[in-house]
């Protein structure tokens, strides 16, 4: 038999030779833990449907990860597939059929991560890629938001839609139990939702994107542990608030307030948990500012001038594609040189 690299007597490794206390699985599982309050809030608002959808997308993600890593590095238990599954689940509507959530998780891991070479190699955030696929494949199901509030008062246990639609079959939708999201109301009916409802999350929308306050608390914990670069969410919030304030000042009737922009839709969830994905965000701090401002600008543009009511997903995916270029132009000065070395 030919000798494999592992059977060589001497192991040669590249620097660094000191190991920090944080390993990849540790960071990943911490992120999963920090998502637990968000999951809990979503179950509070949307009942068992929320948990079912998250479990289904996790199952899709993990089964696909398992299918790809039967040979090769064992990344099955490092928690990264779990994060993809949970994040994808959080961006779906509560009444989403479970089989579609499973397909989304499988696509996100298969085409968003494994095809590029697995953990650390992907260009796009796998959860968002899964969602983009679902949006293109099942545009009706993914924009069917179950109505919140009175429609479900006293019936927390009821499913919020046809979660158990048979695989490959259409869900049955009862029109009276659906409603538009705050962004949809803003775009198509020009009515605003109260800021307190937006802050607490008692509005229609995706499972995990409604409760902005809980997401901010979880994000603060991650930033304090240094598991995410606080500059990315900060720059997104600042740029969205800045552009929205200017537009709101120009024509308050046409353009919504900055508070509404920040707390509606998936902006909080996207800015805190998806744009900050270590693999798909820039490595330099200056790059992170550029990245975040770009996302903020795109989000506002798509929401206000685009055909869609929500643009966080496409904004982050587009900026993901630019990350290699951002990294290149923000390369720090090589130590000892006076002129910045650029290779563009």
């Amino acid at each position: 038999m030919t000798p494999t690299p592992h059977s060589q007597p001497i192991q040669v490794m590249a620097a660094p030779h000191f190991k920090g206390p944080d390993s990849t699985p540790q960071i990943m599982w911490s992120v999963v833990a920090s998502l637990c309050p968000v999951i809990a809030a979503s179950i509070y608002f949307f009942g068992p449907s929320a948990l079912l959808v998250i479990l289904a997308s996790c199952a899709g993600a993990i089964v696909t990860e398992w299918a790809f890593v039967r040979s090769g590095p064992r990344t099955l238990f490092d928690g990264s597939g779990m994060i993809t599954g949970v994040l994808l689940g959080l961006t779906l509507p509560p009444g989403f059929p479970l089989w579609m959530a499973f397909v989304g998780g499988a696509f996100g891991i298969g085409f968003g991560k494994m095809i590029f070479g697995g953990l650390g190699q992907n260009i796009f955030n796998p959860a968002l890629l899964g969602r983009a696929f679902l949006q293109a494949a099942f545009p009706v199901a993914i924009t069917t938001w179950s109505a919140s509030g009175e429609a479900w008062a006293g019936s927390w246990w009821h499913l919020r839609g046809d979660n158990f639609a048979l695989p490959l079959m259409s869900p049955h939708v009862v029109d009276t139990l659906t409603g538009a999201t705050p962004l949809g109301f803003m775009k198509f009916e020009h009515t605003a939702t109260s800021n307190l409802d937006l802050l607490l999350g008692s509005v229609n929308g995706s499972i995990g994107e409604t409760s902005g306050l809980v997401i901010l608390v979880s994000g603060a914990y991650l930033a304090w542990k240094n598991f995410l670069n606080w500059r990315i969410p900060a720059s997104i919030f600042l740029s969205v608030a800045g552009i929205a304030s200017v537009l709101h000042a120009i024509d308050a009737a046409r353009y919504p307030s900055p508070i509404f922009m920040l707390f509606s839709g998936g902006l909080m969830l996207g800015a805190v948990f998806m744009a900050t994905d270590m693999v798909t965000s820039p490595v330099t701090n200056r790059g992170c500012w550029i990245f975040g401002i770009g996302i903020g600008f795109l989000v506002v543009s798509i929401r206000i001038w685009g055909g869609l009511s929500e643009g966080v997903m496409y904004a982050i995916l587009l900026m993901n594609a630019l990350v290699p270029f951002i990294n290149r132009i923000t390369q720090p000065r090589v130590f000892g040189t006076s002129v910045k070395v650029r290779s563009l």
């Binding site: 059929p97 696929f133 293109a136 494949a137 099942f138 199901a141 639609a165 490959l168 079959m169 259409s170």
Partner: peptide, 20 residues
Amino acid sequence: LFGDSYEPWVVMILPPGGFL
């Protein structure tokens, strides 16, 4: 092939579906 309640995967007949 699958009866009336089949949920079509719209993406497959759009341009991205060709590439996929």
